[in-house]
Simulated assay, not measured.
Amino acid sequence: MNRVIMVRLIAVVVLMLLFWLALRKPKVVPSRGQSIIELAVGYVRDEIVYDMLGERIGKKYLPYILTLFFGILFMNLTTAIPFLNISGNGLLGMPLVLALTTYVVFIYAGFREAGGLTFLRNALFPAGVPWPLYILLTPIELVNTFLVRPVSLALRLMLNLMVGHLLLVITFSATAFFVGLMNLWSVMGVFTLAGSFIMTLMELLVSVLQAYVFSLLTTSYIQLSVAKSH
């Protein structure tokens, strides 16, 4: 158990608690908490999953995409919460687990929905390409589909949150440094404090965007896998 593991556990517990409190007694006329949760779930369902996969296939993978979106979001938001001050996705472990899980899901979806041969043919031998080009194209598609996708998912999520965390550390540390000088340079602390506030808002925006991007890319990979033809 270390600080990052603790932050991840706290984020998951808070996420589960909020959903339980909002949905434990659902009503036809929803409460404020139920409305917020339903709007968030409805957005992910309609604008990401059903829009790309359709309702029939989308229903099968909706629970996973929702878990991804809200899990990543809550672990990202901890970077701006006092006394936590680090994202659960700011180190490689969790992004790698999420990326590898997505890797398994989109391969499973391809074999289940399109059939193994169709999935591999679409992934490695794109239609409409002159056959001699497959000598060059197929190895590239092999690396892209089965290596680049999970690696890029993990690195994109981790690096965005790690860089944001470092920027917050720099701005807040600079504020403490200048204020501690107790001389004319202390005025600089006002500017670095303003920078800290702006970077915190930016980090909150990045936290939401990265949850959206990861979920959107996962859905697009599933869509490519289940297609009967490309």
Rank of each mutant, 00 (worst) to 15 (best):
L18P: 00
G58C: 00
E113H: 10
R112L: 09
P150M: 06
V213D: 15
R156W: 14
L142N: 08
S220C: 07
L166F: 15
S207K: 09
T79G: 06
I36E: 01
F74T: 02
H165Q: 15
G54Q: 01
F177L: 15
I170K: 12
S35H: 06
P150I: 04
L204T: 07
M75K: 09
F83K: 09
N160H: 03
Q210P: 01
F111T: 06
M158Q: 12
D46G: 02
A11L: 02
S220W: 12
Y61Q: 04
V129N: 10
R32F: 03
M75N: 14
K25C: 02
A174V: 13
F74H: 08
F19S: 01
L17K: 02
L117W: 11
T101F: 10
L161A: 11
L100Q: 06
L184S: 13
M75H: 13
M158D: 00
E141Q: 15
R8N: 05
L77A: 07
L142T: 03
G90D: 11
K27I: 02
I107W: 07
T218I: 09
M52P: 02
L124Y: 07
F178A: 10
V179I: 15
N89P: 03
L193D: 11
L23Q: 00
G58D: 03
L9I: 01
M162N: 12
A11W: 05
N85M: 04
N122C: 05
T218R: 12
V41S: 03
G71M: 00
